[in-house]
Design a protein around this nucleic acid. Structure first.
Lengths: 193, 193
DNA sequence: CATGCGATAGAACGAGCGCTCTATTCACTA
DNA sequence: TAGTGAATAGAGCGCTCGTTCTATCGCATG
């Protein structure tokens, strides 16, 4: 298989873990399923991730963090106005979700909720992801002239509303929640100008 | 045990399932764990829920639906202004979450995300829960004089933002996300008057 | 060619899973 | 009092889980 040697076993394992846990959560994802999906053996999995399933989940969450960070950066670079940029983000999430057959929601949320209060390492990784995303939004708003306090609070609600809307969109298999969320967030941002 | 005969085995099993799945998700919750927590035997569990784990999860989600519905109804009855009512809801969620040691988040979200696209019965129950909650918010707004379209869209974002903020609050173990969400949602609602 | 080591390979372990099954208890009616 | 069916009880089924372990492979360096 071509991808096997171009990407590397370790990275392939992380990607498989991320996608599987994104779709079915931490508990329902088995290590043998991961090794099968990644076209690696169980030995390789434990060779690269001696911490086992938990270490694997942490890396998967960080991978999801990087993915969404990249989406935010790309949109923020291309769209100057922050309110307009958020609408684009919402639409990107919406189409991505629909194109996956409503299977691939936020790669962090599912695992985060399952691990909250029980698996500290995974929870911390998820917390860092949300922090990073909020930081990107806050900086974008700051660069557009918003006050520090306003930008800080708006960043919270932008990320949280997108998260909630994506979850809702996935469960109801509809693009409406994210479309509405984009419009409302833009209106909220504009109300602080 | 007093509660054993006052509540009834069936209801006790549903409550145990709901709380366990709320905290650790569908996959990580075992039937023996449920029967232990509910002070019932495995035989009783299958007697009342012959559909097994999936039927149990559906009932647990519906139980969570009723819980949040009751919270919304109570607050909406007591607080006339819809924007003020949403702030109260956000604070109630926040204190409830903190008082549980950041363990008891939304009783529907975790199970819903795990089952999306894989376990249709559970997904449908979760979808109905969100629909019910949106309906309550929409009616509240309608009764306060908002247009049908505006109320419909606002109901989406109110529920989704509260959901996202509660998830964020749980993961970061902080009351800030829900406090900010309440303020922003009130501002958004007021902007349509 | 020989040595060493990261990487691959998968058998095997104990534990726990969802679920089935039979046996027993209990309250109530014929 | 005998009979009936709901409810309780838990042993045991086949299976998969996360993890451990030993054996082998590929390949760079001596």
């Amino acid at each position: 298989m071509a991808t096997k040697h171009e990407i590397g076993t370790r990275e392939r394992i992380i990607r498989a873990t991320s996608r599987l846990m994104q779709r079915q959560g931490y508990g329902a994802t088995g290590l043998k399923e991961i090794s099968r999906e990644a076209e690696a053996t169980l030995g390789s999995v434990y060779h690269f991730f001696p911490g086992g399933k938990q270490e694997l989940a942490v890396e998967a969450v960080r991978h999801g963090d990087r993915e969404f960070t990249e989406l935010l950066r790309t949109v923020f670079d291309r769209v100057d106005d922050p309110a307009a940029a958020i609408i684009v983000c919402a639409r990107d999430l919406s189409t991505g979700l629909r194109d996956s057959g409503w299977l691939d929601g936020c790669p962090v949320t599912t695992t985060a909720l399952e691990s909250a209060g029980r698996l500290p390492d995974i929870q911390r990784a998820a917390e860092e992801a949300f922090e990073n995303w909020r930081g990107l939004v806050r900086d974008k708003l700051r660069r557009s002239g918003f006050d520090e306090d306003v930008a800080h609070d708006l960043a919270h609600t932008v990320i949280n509303t997108l998260e909630g809307a994506e979850m809702s969109a996935q469960v109801s298999q509809s693009e409406a929640p994210l479309e509405i969320a984009g419009r409302h967030l833009a209106r909220l941002i504009d109300s602080y100008r």
